[in-house]
Amino acid sequence: MPEVFKLPKSLKKNIFHYCPGCHHSIVHRLLCEVIDELNLRDRAVGLASIGCACFLYFYIDVDIVEAPHGRSCSVATGMKRARPELVVFTYQGDGDFAAIGLGDSLHAASRGESITALMINNTVYGMTGGQLSPTTVLQQKTTTTPLGRDPKREGFPLKMAEVLSNFEGVAFCARTAVNTPKRVIETKKLLKKAFLAQLENRGFSYLEILSTCPVNWKMDALSATKHVDKLIEIFPLGVFKDTFGGNSEI
């Protein structure tokens, strides 16, 4: 009988600690599949950032270092510069990548560092209890915007994929989601491309993945997953920059 389903080799057999309906686990699995398929395990180094995914090393069986909050792109820069033969990826939340680490992220992108940065965008600070994030959408209630995000007070959501697409150092830049099976499959393709960009030394590659935070959104798993469609209206999916050429439509 042909094997139709198996666990990726790079995925550890630990039970995910993530909340029900959280998309981190889906992305973890996709990441492991891509690491396996591109045969990267013996030269990959991952950056676990501050946020719910700081326990990345419980699940992903590659060399991993914890970076201080927001500093993943700088730590990755140091690694890649010192050992260009390594494949270096960051796994960051929207707060880590786009708030406290915005400078590190933009400068690494602008320098065209040959690293792969993943930003899991769920529009809130999950681990600390659902506070305002730079990607929180207008009117969204968080624990520090109890009346909803007011652009006059908290400004507008930051759209990182659009921002990065203007950078000359960026080789690949896309936004995707994993709230439908089709999008899961597409995300894997984009993830692969994000790593290929690094393998071919094209420059900085960035993939933003819209994700859920059911607990802090105060929704059940299913509604949260459906709610991602609403986010897509604000954060459109697509490939914003692709130096590979060719058709990369979702």
Binding site: R71, S74, V75, A76, G78, M79, K80, H107
Partner: peptide, 23 residues
Amino acid sequence: VFLQAESETSAINMVLGASAVGA
């Protein structure tokens, strides 16, 4: 490798990364 970082904060974290891979 020589790299001028965009801030001292980034510089020390680049140091962290390079150190973790053995430099």
